[in-house]
Nucleic acid binder design. Structure first.
Lengths: 266, 266
DNA sequence: CGTTCAGTTGACCATGATCAAGAGTGGTGG
DNA sequence: CCACCACTCTTGATCATGGTCAACTGAACG
């Protein structure tokens, strides 16, 4: 696998060969494997390393005393879990594995060394951190303003593009392992309502979801349905998809890349 | 006025006299005044400076194409508006004045100088940035999981403690200039429902809201009502209020500081 | 094969939205 | 100084989005 972190960071800033080999060394340190549903870090822990997702999906979440859970972000390969070990003394959220998860553990002093000696990497890390914060803002908008239908459409768009930026999509498809309960906890809905809403998205031919696999036959249409504007991801190579982003134009989709679905069960 | 930024940063990390005088110089640069309802920065702008709130309230928000608005954070004196000018090329949100607003404009190169020569300040700035991100997470939880009643109680708790940390509270009271429409846009509710919910908070003697002034006669009770746990603010001097935070204990409030309200109109 | 977990369906309910109108408050200008 | 205007707050009636509860189906895994 090409290094997902490198790919992710080059989304933001150019790196030299020296930077790249330094990054490769980072991820060659100790790696660990977490089983689905298990926590990688837990709220209240003292942070001791930064984790880089190598393979699989995770989610960052907080819980209320009565058990309500809110997922505040998903983490996919190339994502770093909170650069805050130099700063905050307690984790304010937990991180759980959704799939089988492989992460690289980057120790405090290793990261410190990188930051002092590799300014390009430092900038790129900052960038990732700011983008992650921007994604938080968009999630506030999502749960605060959008309807159930829009929220889920928006989430599908976001995760597809985030996976695409690290090369983890195949044409119109990508893995999508969160359960409907996970989606519910990420969007502030109930699992029952998520189920019905996804059925409506399916009925409108906006998504095909089957066995942890998401297919988006007509991305511009889905973006329109989710009031999705990719600016907040601050990607550089999104030209493929941003055609219809700035204006939510209604012109029947001239020249849009669209996957023809030949037959589909009712 | 004692420098709110200094006070805010010392919440996080100790500063030397040199640091403090450097911070004083920062805020002595150009200041500008924004009128209520006017934008300080607008989504899509290229960021060219960092703004430090000196006086008044602002809000950071995003809007959807059909006009729905979500406030994603409030900014009060001592808050820095997005340290991302070195990083992101476009603002992904707008910032508007709620009251008459005085801000210090800190130019790119001035800030760059501070960051290279004053490591303590740099750490403190990082800290503030991480805390701001943590607040974003809490807002996702707020709009995603809490009821209207809990959301508004939570918002009142948060803003009171944030103001307290920069010395802008008087006993049990603080200024609270956002309108009910602003509160609605911050909590993902409608103004009508915010109105009814605040009435219920009043009826339960949890808050007194009058003319832009908020009084919290019994903070632990309000925290309980809002499922509020101040850990996410990562403050250092919160011992006053954190007694009942870690466990939401139900023991009638022995020894809680409580303001006796002598009479109150029905 | 049985157990478990994710997905699905139905009936009913409630939180909060919508629409509309009126009351209080503050600011401005004639 | 007062009249008017704009804005925020308040109230009532009705509606709808999404929640709750409960049961059932189907796939995966040992």
């Amino acid at each position: 696998m090409p290094n997902a972190l490198t790919r992710r960071l080059e989304e933001y800033t150019p790196l030299t060969d020296a930077d790249r080999s330094q990054l490769a060394k980072l991820t060659a340190q100790s790696t660990l494997t977490i089983h689905p549903k298990h926590d990688l870090v837990r709220e209240g822990d003292a942070p001791k390393s930064v984790y880089l997702i190598l393979d699989g999906w995770a989610c960052c979440y907080r819980t209320l005393p009565d058990g309500r859970r809110q997922i505040v972000d998903f983490a996919v390969p190339g994502d770093l879990c909170d650069l805050n070990l130099f700063i905050l003394d307690r984790m304010d959220h937990s991180i759980a594995a959704i799939t089988r998860l492989r992460v690289a553990e980057i120790a405090r002093d290793v990261l410190h060394d990188v930051i002092t000696n590799h300014p390009n990497i430092t900038i790129a890390l900052w960038w990732q951190e700011m983008v992650s914060k921007s994604i938080h803002r968009e999630w506030i908008v999502n749960v605060g303003q959008r309807t159930a239908f829009e929220r889920i459409a928006h989430l599908f768009c976001e995760m597809f593009l985030r996976l695409e930026s690290v090369g983890l999509t195949n044409g119109f498809s990508c893995d999508f392992p969160p359960t409907q309960t996970d989606i519910a906890d990420a969007t502030g809905l109930t699992a029952v309502h998520v189920n019905r809403t996804i059925q409506e998205l399916r009925r409108q031919r906006l998504v095909i979801v089957d066995r942890q696999r998401l297919t988006i036959p007509d991305m511009p249409a889905l973006q329109e349905a989710g009031l999705f504007n990719s600016e907040y991801l601050h990607h550089r190579r999104l030209d493929r998809h941003t055609l219809s982003n700035k204006v939510f134009d209604m012109n029947g989709g001239l020249g849009r890349p669209t996957l023809q679905v030949v037959s589909q069960a009712s």
